[in-house]
C-alpha cells in the first residue's frame, strides 16, 4: 500500500510539473507582453528593457522555466494584463466562490448519478420517469439549461434568484454556506442556498449522467456475478446482499468517472458562472479570454489543473483502499 501511495503521489507530482511546463510554453509563445502588465502601454523603451531584465525575460527558456516554478511555489503567477493585479491575488478572491459551487454541484452529481444507477439496476417502479428527463437534460448545452432555469424559476415562478451569490462580501473561509453558519446568520445561509441551487443543479446534470451510466453498468454486472449469487444462496436479506457485496464491488468505475467528471465540471463552471454572474474563477476566466489576458488564463488553468490532478490521485487511492487485490 505504501508503495502504491508513493508511486501515485510521484506520478501526480510529475503531472503537475508537465502542466506547468505546458502553461509556461504557452505563455512564452502567447502574443501578450507581460511587461505591459506592469508598466502599461505607454512605457518608455528604456523602462520596458529594464523591466524585461528584472522579470528575467532575457534569460534562456529553461532558466525562465525554473524561475517560473520557483515563483509559482512562492505564490507569484505574474500580473494580470486586465486587472493590473497579481494573478494570485485575483485567484485568492475568486477561487472560493468557484470551489463552493463545484463542491455542491459535485455532491449533487454523485447523488443524482447514484439515484440514476440504483433506480435502473434495481428496476425501481417509476424510475424511468426520472431517468428519461435527466438523460434529455444532459444532452443540452449547460448555457441553455441556465437560460431555461432563469426563465422558469426566476422570471415565471419567481422562487429563485438569477445572479450572484446573495452576499456582498464573504467571511474568513470565503464560502458563503460555511461563513454564514460560523456567523450564525440564518438569512445569509438561506440566501446562499437559494443562489446556489440553480447553478449547482445545472452544473451537476451532465456529470451525473456520466457517473450514473457507468455506475449502473457496473451495478448490473455485479448483480449478475457469481459471488452475488453465492451471497443470495446464503439466504441473506436483499439489503445485506446489496450493502455488503454489491455496492462495494461496483463503486470503482463510478469513482474513476467521478474523478474525470470533476475536471469537466471545472471547465463547465466557466459558462455557468458567466450566465449567473457568479463571482468566481470561471467568470474571471471568461472575462480574461476576450482581453487576451494570458497570465490570468494561465493562472486559472494551473490552479484548476492542480485541483483536478490531486482529485484524481485521491480517487485512485480510495479505489486501492477498497480493493484488496490492488494493494497486495
Amino acid at each position: 500500500m505504501t508503495r502504491f501511495l508513493l508511486r501515485r503521489t510521484g506520478s501526480a507530482v510529475v503531472l503537475v510539473l508537465v502542466l506547468t511546463a505546458v502553461v509556461f510554453v504557452l505563455q512564452a509563445v502567447s502574443p501578450g507582453d507581460p511587461v505591459k502588465a506592469y508598466l502599461g502601454n505607454n512605457a518608455s523603451p528604456a523602462a520596458i528593457a529594464a523591466q524585461r531584465q528584472a522579470l528575467g525575460l532575457n534569460d534562456p527558456l529553461p532558466v525562465q522555466y525554473f524561475h517560473y516554478i520557483v515563483h509559482a511555489l512562492q505564490g507569484n503567477l505574474g500580473m494580470s494584463l486586465r486587472t493590473r493585479r497579481p494573478v494570485m491575488a485575483d485567484l485568492h478572491d475568486f477561487l472560493p466562490a468557484t470551489v463552493e459551487l463545484v463542491a455542491v454541484a459535485f455532491v449533487l452529481a454523485l447523488l443524482l448519478g447514484s439515484l440514476y444507477a440504483v433506480s435502473g439496476s434495481l428496476r425501481w417502479p417509476g424510475g424511468a420517469f426520472f431517468r428519461g428527463p435527466l438523460l434529455v437534460l444532459a444532452t443540452a448545452p449547460p448555457f441553455l439549461l441556465a437560460l431555461g432555469g432563469i426563465i422558469l424559476f426566476y422570471a415565471q415562478l419567481q422562487v429563485l434568484p438569477a445572479a450572484g451569490r446573495g452576499v456582498d462580501s464573504t467571511g474568513p473561509s470565503g464560502f458563503v454556506l460555511i461563513d454564514s453558519i460560523l456567523g450564525g446568520d440564518a438569512t445569509e445561509f438561506v440566501a446562499g442556498v437559494q443562489h446556489l441551487v440553480l447553478p449547482a443543479v445545472i452544473l451537476s446534470i451532465a456529470p451525473s449522467i456520466s457517473i450514473g451510466r457507468i455506475l449502473r453498468s457496473s451495478l448490473d454486472s455485479t448483480l449478475a456475478s457469481d459471488y452475488v449469487r453465492t451471497a443470495r444462496s446464503k439466504g441473506l436479506r436483499p439489503i445485506v446482499v446489496l450493502g455488503k457485496h454489491v455496492v462495494r464491488n461496483s463503486l470503482g468505475p463510478g469513482l474513476s468517472m467521478a474523478g474525470l467528471q470533476l475536471g469537466f465540471m471545472f471547465a463547465g463552471v466557466v459558462v455557468v458562472e458567466q450566465v449567473f454572474s457568479w463571482p468566481g474563477i470561471g467568470n474571471y476566466l471568461a472575462a480574461s479570454i476576450p482581453t487576451s489576458d494570458f497570465p490570468a488564463i494561465a493562472g486559472v488553468t494551473l490552479v484548476l489543473g492542480i485541483i483536478y490532478i490531486v482529485a484524481n490521485a485521491l480517487v485512485d487511492v480510495l479505489q486501492a483502499l477498497a480493493d484488496p487485490r490492488l494493494n497486495a
Partner: peptide, 19 residues
C-alpha cells in the same frame, strides 16, 4: 499524460496562446 491533464482547460489555454 494527456488524459491526466484537464483537457478543456488546456484547450482554452492553447487557444488563448494561439490566438
Amino acid at each position: 499524460l494527456f488524459l491526466a491533464l484537464p483537457g478543456t482547460l488546456v484547450a482554452i489555454a492553447l487557444v488563448a496562446a494561439l490566438g
